[in-house]
Design a protein around this nucleic acid. Structure first.
Length: 385
RNA sequence: GCUGGGAUGGCGGAGCGGACAAUCGCACCAGACUGUAAAUCUGGCGGUCGAAAGGCCUACCUAGGUUCGAAUCCUAGUCCCAGCA
């Protein structure tokens, strides 16, 4: 397997660490952000845009790519990475998240049926029925050919009844076991991450992590709603397993939210990589990140709303501190105009900025860890406003 | 000049006697956005008091009138549009 993880430097006073994930498509210097290319596209951005925005790795989704373009096409291209012409490291999600996601979205609950065997989905594209099992997810993910793949799981919904939570929790462990053995059988050179569930239940989280460790997955992912809903709950979720997190396995946070505050919260607790859709989605709705030097703070969530009328005549860029393509070349007023007139270029320039911002923040965090400065750096960002 | 149609909140445009402070869209303001069915979604949007329920005031071109009651009906005026000269 062309995959390994090494910790270059560990923070003395927290679980934060700077490391390197080696993959056959290159290294990922951690901690790192992975933009999400659900359908083999980080919305509005080309691979060149992504690279220029310091992107190291992108994440695609089994569920969506299986439905379109389908495994036959992706097989011919050798995976979704080559298909989208992203030649760097990739991650694929197992489709497990869609299990609960589709369920909560459907009004009659008939969009998906979950049994121990697997999940029967209705395609959101044409309504056709599909069965995804842990084994099937592993097969599909082999075709997607990401460097890092995920076990097939069923996240616990925060709105689940205790009984339903228990059911999903037990099922996830069974599914992970099946994912693991299917992955072994496929002899893929991909790294399979086991997913830790348990919502905000401390003992479930611990049990889940211990189970994942006992199987011997190459990496660990933290899943479920509670990892991304707010920095406070993210902290609670990660703190539950802080003392039993291994040092030699990379930790990925699935759908980590909370902006810069959430990122610091997670990195401090040992997260090496994370993905998040809202960073690019917020970009498309005009919410753009700013540095502390620009007035960013916890209270404004380190972001501005470019559609606000105060930017109508703003000649300065979104951020004076930022060195992304957008900030180097365009005024906030221009971005404001593009958004109000719904010009498509605005979506791209905003996405470039937000992706760059988060990648740049990760690089700065990494450097601060390497220099033994993480604590001060974090304080600089969070202790103001 | 004649004939016909019309004037409603920032704009467009419903309503055509009571359930109208007035449908809806745009704009504007505020908010949300987690492993993306998301260039999306939610709320507000005459003034004022109130936490809210709700109250009060001013309102559908202008001025009169009819009516218990008018954005809605009548009269006059002003302006706009279309067709014909």
């Amino acid at each position: 397997m062309d995959f390994s993880f090494e910790v270059s430097k560990k923070d003395k006073k927290s679980l934060a660490r700077a490391g390197v994930i080696h993959t056959s498509h290159g290294d990922i210097l951690t901690p790192a952000f992975s933009p999400v290319a659900t359908k083999a596209s980080v919305k509005t951005l080309t691979p060149d845009d992504l690279r220029a925005a310091k992107t190291q790795v992108v994440l695609g989704n089994t569920y969506h790519l299986y439905l379109k373009p389908g495994t036959e096409t992706l097989k011919k291209f050798g995976g979704f990475g080559p298909f989208m012409r992203w030649h760097g490291p990739t991650i694929s999600d197992s489709g497990g998240y869609q299990v609960s996601f589709l369920r909560s979205k459907s009004e009659d609950g008939r969009l998906v049926k979950i049994t121990d065997k697997g999940a029967i989905f209705s395609s959101y594209l044409d309504g056709s029925r599909h069965l995804i099992t842990p084994e099937k997810s592993m097969e599909i993910q082999k075709i997607l050919a990401a460097d890092i793949i995920m076990a097939f799981d069923q996240p616990l919904g925060s709105d689940y009844s205790p009984l339903k939570k228990k059911e999903a929790f037990e099922r996830t462990m069974k599914w992970e076991e099946r994912s693991f053995s299917a992955w072994k059988k496929l002899k893929s050179n991909q790294a399979l991450y086991g997913i830790v569930q348990g919502d905000i239940d401390r003992s479930l989280r611990r049990k889940s992590l211990k189970f994942v460790l006992s199987l011997g997955f190459p990496g660990i992912a933290m899943g479920g709603e509670s990892i991304g809903v707010s920095p406070k709950i993210t902290a609670e979720t990660l703190d539950a397993v802080a003392d039993i997190l291994p040092l030699d396995k990379p930790l990925h946070a699935l759908g980590l939210g909370g902006g810069p505050e959430g990122i610091f919260t997670a990195v401090q607790r040992g997260v090496d990589t994370f993905d998040n859709t809202s960073i690019t989605r917020m970009a498309r709705t005009g919410l753009l990140f700013i540095y502390p030097e620009d007035g960013g703070s916890i209270s404004n969530k380190f972001r501005i709303d470019i559609e606000k009328s105060k930017f109508k005549n703003a000649r300065a860029p979104i951020s004076n501190k930022c060195s992304c393509y957008t900030c180097k070349n365009f005024s906030a007023a221009y971005l404001h105009h593009l958004f109000l007139t719904r010009e498509l270029l605005g979506l791209r320039l905003a996405s470039i900025h937000n992706v760059f911002f988060v990648n740049d923040l990760m690089e700065r965090i990494r450097n601060s860890i390497l220099e033994g400065d993480f604590r001060a750096f974090k304080k600089y960002w969070l202790n103001r406003g």
